[in-house]
Design a protein around this nucleic acid. Structure first.
Lengths: 245, 245
DNA sequence: GAGTGGTCTAGACCACTCA
DNA sequence: GAGTGGTCTAGACCACTCA
């Protein structure tokens, strides 16, 4: 769940214990994405600590974007369904301006057996059942990203093509609302490759065109990987942007 | 300096004002990188506020990695000279393992006039004087990055080749100690391109090899840009890594 | 005006470092 | 054991939201 007690003494501050209890309620689904959690005063009573200690726990969860605070209104479970967080992890942006709209065009959707490599990233057994989604993304209407998404069958047993259609480029919102799988953070590895075959065809490019390959593993609470995504991006008019602190 | 008062009322919390005062002392050089700032109690007295308010200001600066706290020892101005932060912004890592060592080989070092594009990024006048550093980086001894670094003359008037040699791949540490320019964060734009000419030659590749182009602008306190860097990376054995929350 | 999160204080005590 | 940052409390008051 959390690296809480690496020291020898086993000392764990109260607010870390509270943070853990709150996270457990999130994992269990007691508080669903988008809905408010109890007020700081109520939580203080519930856990028999001061408001300040609850605040510290909530602050850490807010800084991880797991909770969202709104002064005067309350504290909410973060959700990918909200307008403000429309493309929270999308780092590909047009060189001029920002992303307003992304169109998604589904190519196909299969049940697959997860190969060694993919199963490793998803932390499931090789050959276990999963899903493959292939699609084209078009930021600002420009079809510039070819994408393959692999999902473990265990977490997404009942997924159907209609669900993908209904949510288009809001897949993470669909994971949340239908499968109670909230994506909390992602890790990406980026390479430059030479495009060939179907991928360049789909993007309207010629064999040999350079592509940005982005391999993403998406994690839910507890650092559990639940999605593997490979994107191939035409970066002639787009860039992968990153701010590092 | 800081987006502190965007609201209509002009209300600025005390701890934000303290944060600003601390930042001013950092900009002025009152507290240099690597050295300790006064204790929380001393700062509380100095600014006539409670320890808690100082803590809140310091906490924000610590989360921005501008200050570093060490329990029992004190609070220090973050520095690129410390071992723990050896490659704070380097996102290129070998596919197997982590970066232990990066060799830097200087190609050349010139005084230049900054072109339109570069001057724009550095927020100085077109044609104003600057410096160009060209070099090859070799993570784990593998020469896989060609790099061009442009510096504004205004901040680095007295830079010399020997300084670059002495600091090798610790340039940001050199900026700090010699020019009192501490890099606080960087912004990068990444593209996939086809390599050609001198760049591929330098990396021991053939014309047409795919390269990851990373364009970086580095900022000091006050969001002031002070370095423009273009890197071209051979990503056959390396990846650009990124965690997004 | 009631309820929420946000700020600020004063004070107690704890964990850690270093001489 | 003195000094540092780290945690926790109880209480006051502020800014903001919403009915």
């Amino acid at each position: 769940m959390e690296l809480v007690s690496d020291n020898n003494t086993g000392y764990v501050p109260l607010y870390r214990q509270i943070k853990r209890l709150i996270t457990e309620s999130l994992v269990s689904g007691e508080w669903a994405p988008g809905s408010p959690i109890p007020s700081e005063m109520e939580l203080a009573q519930r856990y028999s600590v001061s408001q300040g200690t609850v605040r510290k726990a909530v602050s850490e969860l807010a800084s991880q974007k797991i909770l969202v605070r709104h002064q005067g209104k309350g504290t909410f479970v973060a959700s990918h369904s909200q307008e403000s967080t429309k493309f929270p992890f999308l780092r590909i942006t047009p060189d001029s301006g920002v992303v307003e709209e992304v169109d998604a065009r589904l190519l196909d959707f299969w049940r697959i057996k997860l190969d060694d490599h993919s199963a490793g990233f998803l932390n499931v057994a090789e050959g276990s059942s999963g899903w493959l989604i292939r699609r084209i993304l078009a930021p600002e209407g420009e079809e510039s990203i070819y994408e393959e998404i692999r999902l473990p069958g265990s977490s997404f047993e009942t997924i159907e093509e209609s669900m993908i259609h209904d949510h288009q480029c809001m897949l993470y919102s669909m994971y949340e609302s239908i499968f109670n799988v909230r994506i909390v953070y992602v890790e990406e590895r980026v390479k430059a490759i030479i495009g060939e075959g179907e991928i360049v065809d789909r993007l309207g490019l010629l064999d040999g065109a350079p592509l940005l390959k982005v391999e993403r593993v998406a994690y839910t609470y507890d650092d559990r990987p639940v999605e593997l995504r490979r994107s191939y991006c035409n970066t002639t008019k787009h860039s992968y942007r990153n701010k590092i602190i």
